[in-house]
Design a binder for these strands. Structure first.
Lengths: 193, 193
DNA sequence: GTACTAGTTGTACTATCGTTCAAAAAACAC
DNA sequence: GTGTTTTTTGAACGATAGTACAACTAGTAC
């Protein structure tokens, strides 16, 4: 998504398409078997290419993981920007996005979590892993000026995702929305202590 | 921690000690290199034993990971029960526990997150991974009866941990406490919509 | 002492891993 | 057509993985 403009060379064009295919194959692996299942060989088999071609585009496995995480992060970034720019209730839009983690978006959300967790140890992944939370903060900033309310909403979003993914908590959009609203609309002097 | 009572047989006693050593070694590996670094060989080397002895106590790698996750989960359970049973402000105690993830408790918290993430794919790990959130909910239940307030506090706790671990967010105990208080003390009719 | 059980070791098998490399194939420029 | 660049292949290297297994040691019971 953050690639250069279309190349005129037909070979490079094919190369870019191939690269995207490999990233998609990597994501498919992460969604099916987790990040631990990502090897040059499994990715190549998934993409229907030879192992060496996978290493041709991504010299190291880390490169592959960075690209894959960037891809999911891009998707979420687009979704949130769409919500922010759209006409509807932004908090409800976020709630629906989060609630998807319990259904059709579960594999994708899980992939994002796995790759983000990797980021704690691989510096190359860190800036990409931060994006989801930055995007939520951006959305929150359109609803309030209180920085702690923003932080509270970001934390609530992450915590709800965790609960839905790991705990198999109910992913009811209305329920998620109520928890989110509670986080962002709480009075800042709730507890004077 | 959830083992049987002390065996009288000196060999079995040694065996139990050995088992605990292996679990500790596994945790050390997870803390240093992540869950991906856990192999029978690395664990054995860390524990100063042979590879076959590691497989003698834990036939499969999953067994090892379950035991390791159980161990960290036990530690957190003990900490939270201590806070609940103690005389001090329970919410502040939780805030301090969470804030530790930014400092001395970082490796341990990261290990818990990594193993919990594994739980999404390995059923054997699931019940153990749920414990942390159940414990926080237990603590929250001593502060309010509103189930959504409890859920909000649990989500906030998890989200704050994520921010501290992945985002390298400031882990100021007072700050964490304010976010937590905001989650649990918000009025339930903040947003009528 | 013998018989028995639990812990421990060394070795080895097969599989898969990341990575490299020279060479072939394809698309381009001329 | 020739020459050049990019993509693609097949094979191979060394390293490490999980696991199995027979043998050895050490504690226990009698």
């Amino acid at each position: 998504m953050n690639e250069e403009s279309e190349p005129v060379d037909g070979r490079k064009a094919r190369g870019h398409r191939r690269r995207a295919e490999i990233i998609d194959a990597t994501l498919a692996i992460v969604m099916r078997d987790g990040a631990a299942g990502v090897t040059h060989r499994t990715v190549a088999k998934q993409a229907g290419i030879t192992t060496s071609l996978s290493t041709y585009y991504f010299a190291t496995l880390d490169d592959l993981l960075v690209a894959a995480l960037s891809s999911v992060a891009d998707a979420y970034t687009a979704r949130i920007h769409q919500i922010v720019a759209g006409p509807g209730d932004k908090l409800r839009g976020l709630a629906e996005l989060i609630a998807e983690s319990g259904g059709p978006g579960r594999a994708r959300a899980l992939a994002e979590r796995e790759l983000s967790t990797l980021a704690a140890r691989r510096p190359a992944l860190a800036p990409v892993a931060r994006r989801w939370r930055e995007n939520v903060a951006e959305l929150a900033a359109t609803l309030t000026d209180d920085p702690e309310a923003i932080a509270a909403l970001v934390a609530a979003s992450d915590g709800l995702c965790t609960a839905i993914l790991i705990d198999n908590a109910p992913a009811d959009s209305d329920y998620v929305h109520r928890i989110l609203a509670r986080a962002i609309h709480a009075p800042q002097d709730a507890v004077p202590s």
